[in-house]
C-alpha cells in the first residue's frame, strides 16, 4: 500500500521543473493578489468612531488569522442563526478545509524535514485527507444544488461566483477520483486508511483495466487535480472566496455594540423573539393584499 508521501514523487522527472514553476507562480499570484487587496484596507480613515477604527494593517491581518478560529467562525454561529442548511454547508467547508490543510501541511513538513513520517501519523493524515475531501465535496454539492437547482426566491449573483464554485468542486472531486485510481489495485484492504478512496477504487476495479492504464489515468488525474487546485489558489484573491480572509474581522467587530448602547445580548442574533427563517419573503402580507383589501382608493 502506498504512503501519503508517494504523491510527492509521482511526477515524472522531466515534468517536475515546469510543475513546481507553475506551483510557485500560483502561490505568487495568491500572495500578491491577497496583498493587493489587503493593502486597500489601510486606505481607510482612522480615528472615526466605531469598532477597530484605529487598527493598523498589522492588527487587521492578525485578526484575520486569529479570528478564523473564533467560535463564531468555527461553528458558523451567525449563519446557523439564519439558516441550518447554510450553517451545515459552511461547517463542511470550514472543518473539511481545516482537516485537509492540516494534513497537507503536516505531511509536507515531515517530507521536507526527513522524508519520513511516523506510521501512526501517516495513517491519521491519510484518513483525514480522504474524509475531509468528501465532507468538502458534500458541502460544495449542497452549494451547487442551492445555486443551480433550488435557488432561493430572492437571489442575486454574478456568473463568476458560479465559476468559482465549479472550480472548487472540480479540485475536490478530482482529488477523490485520483485517490480511487490510486487505490484501484489494493481494493478493500486500503479501506481502513482511505475509506472513500478505497470505495471508489473498488468501484473502478470492476472495469478490470490493465494496471498500466490505471497508472496512466492516475497520473493524468494527478495533474488535473493539481491544475484545479493551483488555479483555485491563484484565483482566490480575485474572487469572492477572498471573504475567507476578510469576513472573520467583520464578524468579530459585529460583537461590539454601538457607543452609548445598553449591554447588547451576545451574540445579538440569538436573543429572544427573533423569528428564524430559512428563506423566502417576509412575514408581512403582499402589497396587493394591503392595498387591495384595505386601501380606500381601491374600493
Amino acid at each position: 500500500m502506498q504512503s501519503l508521501f508517494q504523491s510527492f514523487t509521482v511526477i515524472p522527472l522531466p515534468w517536475r521543473a515546469p510543475f513546481y514553476a507553475a506551483a510557485v507562480l500560483a502561490l505568487l499570484l495568491a500572495v500578491g493578489g491577497m496583498w493587493a487587496r489587503v493593502r486597500l484596507w489601510g486606505l481607510g480613515r482612522r480615528g472615526r468612531r466605531g469598532p477597530l477604527s484605529d487598527a493598523g494593517l498589522g492588527h487587521l491581518i492578525w485578526l484575520s488569522l486569529s479570528k478564523f478560529f473564533s467560535a463564531d467562525c468555527l461553528f458558523a454561529r451567525r449563519v446557523f442563526a439564519r439558516s441550518r442548511w447554510r450553517g451545515w454547508m459552511v461547517m463542511a467547508f470550514v472543518w473539511g478545509s481545516l482537516a485537509l490543510i492540516g494534513a497537507v501541511i503536516l505531511s509536507a513538513g515531515f517530507y521536507a524535514a526527513n522524508r519520513a513520517m511516523p506510521a501512526a501519523l501517516d495513517r491519521w493524515a491519510s484518513t483525514a485527507l480522504d474524509v475531509a475531501g468528501t465532507i468538502i465535496l458534500l458541502g460544495l454539492l449542497a452549494a451547487l444544488g442551492r445555486r443551480y437547482l433550488f435557488p432561493p426566491k430572492r437571489w442575486i449573483s454574478v456568473s463568476a461566483d458560479g465559476g468559482l464554485l465549479i472550480l472548487f468542486a472540480l479540485a475536490v472531486f478530482s482529488g477523490l477520483v485520483m485517490e480511487g485510481l490510486r487505490l484501484a489495485g489494493p481494493g478493500w484492504e486500503a479501506a481502513l486508511r482511505w475509506p472513500i478512496g478505497a470505495a471508489l477504487g473498488a468501484a473502478l476495479n470492476s472495469l478490470a483495466l490493465p494496471p498500466e492504464v490505471w497508472e496512466r489515468l492516475y497520473l493524468a488525474m494527478y495533474f488535473a487535480h493539481a491544475g484545479f487546485g493551483l488555479s483555485l489558489l491563484a484565483y482566490l484573491p480575485f474572487s469572492k472566496l477572498f471573504h475567507l480572509v476578510a469576513s472573520q474581522i467583520t464578524t468579530f467587530a459585529a460583537l461590539t455594540p454601538p457607543s452609548g448602547a445598553q449591554a447588547a445580548p451576545q451574540p445579538p442574533l440569538l436573543s429572544r423573539n427573533i423569528p428564524r427563517r430559512e428563506r423566502g419573503r417576509g412575514s408581512g402580507p403582499a402589497l396587493s393584499e394591503v392595498e387591495g383589501v384595505r386601501a380606500r382608493d381601491s374600493q
Partner: peptide
C-alpha cells in the same frame, strides 16, 4: 479617493460579503 471617508472596517466589508443573499429575505 473612494476610500478616505471609510473606516478600515468598512473597507474590509467590501471583501467580506459572501453574497449569501440572506439580506434579501
Amino acid at each position: 479617493s473612494l476610500a478616505d471617508n471609510l473606516t478600515p472596517l468598512q473597507l474590509i466589508a467590501f471583501d467580506a460579503c459572501t453574497r449569501c443573499n440572506e439580506c434579501l429575505n
